[in-house]
């Protein structure tokens, strides 16, 4: 029995020379860079297309699916930035939970598939677009301005180890983390309040 095990494991670990040869045939660096640019363009396209679909769709569920496509694109961007943990968390939380809950909310509120939920007057739409653009600029502008000097660093970014990420969340970034959970608590309290009100009215 032991002899058989040795033979099997030896067969598994010994690689034939032509396979080693194939392992040494690397894609040259410019090719890798072109691939990275192509991936970036693809994900950026996904984000833009999903965002446009979310804003322009006349139907709430289609708008939600546009949002999902945007989330997918953002997850891809995280992968490109060498943070797979963030990418998978993005998929798990934003696509697996949040969009599904948004869908649930849409179905509870209204379930016509004919759409036509979007019937705001033109002025409101323009105002809304302006406010959201201003919010995005206010959030992203300072970050870009502060890190502008580091944009042209050569080489791909390094991957942060998971343990370091966890330690950071529980030491340096502990205050923002707790604040986020307070926001969630407020949302939950709001949900309970709404449900309470409806139940009370239903009894009357």
């Amino acid at each position: 029995m032991n002899g058989l095990v040795t033979v099997l494991s030896a067969g598994a670990s010994r690689t034939p020379p032509f396979i080693e040869e194939l392992g040494r045939m690397m894609l040259p660096a410019p090719g890798q860079e072109i691939l990275a640019y192509l991936a970036f363009a693809f994900y950026a396209g996904l984000i833009a297309a999903g965002g446009l679909a979310a804003v322009l769709a006349r139907n709430l569920v289609r708008a939600m699916l546009g949002l999902v496509v945007t989330f997918l694109g953002v997850a891809g961007m995280y992968l490109l930035m060498a943070s797979p943990f963030m990418a998978f968390m993005q998929l798990l939380i934003y696509i697996g939970a949040i969009s599904v809950l948004i869908f649930f909310a849409i179905m509870l509120v209204r379930n016509t598939s004919s759409g036509e939920e979007m019937n705001l007057p033109g002025l409101c739409q323009a105002g809304g677009a302006l406010v959201s653009a201003a919010a995005a600029a206010a959030l992203c502008g300072p970050v870009i301005a502060l890190n502008a000097g580091r944009l042209n660093q050569p080489g791909p970014p390094g991957e942060t180890p998971l343990a370091e990420l966890g330690e950071g969340l529980l030491s340096y970034y502990v205050a923002p983390l707790e604040l986020i959970s307070i926001v969630l608590l407020v949302a939950m309290a709001g949900g309970v309040l709404l449900a309470w009100d409806q139940r009370y009215r239903g009894r009357q």
């Binding site: 943990f85 998978f88 968390m89 696509i95 598939s113």
Partner: peptide
Amino acid sequence: VNLGLLLILAFTGLETLAVIAGGWASN
């Protein structure tokens, strides 16, 4: 990959999305 378990959990969420999209689109 060193995050295999997380990857599996993340991508199984897409199946739920498929079911609700199909169920809703059927009208």
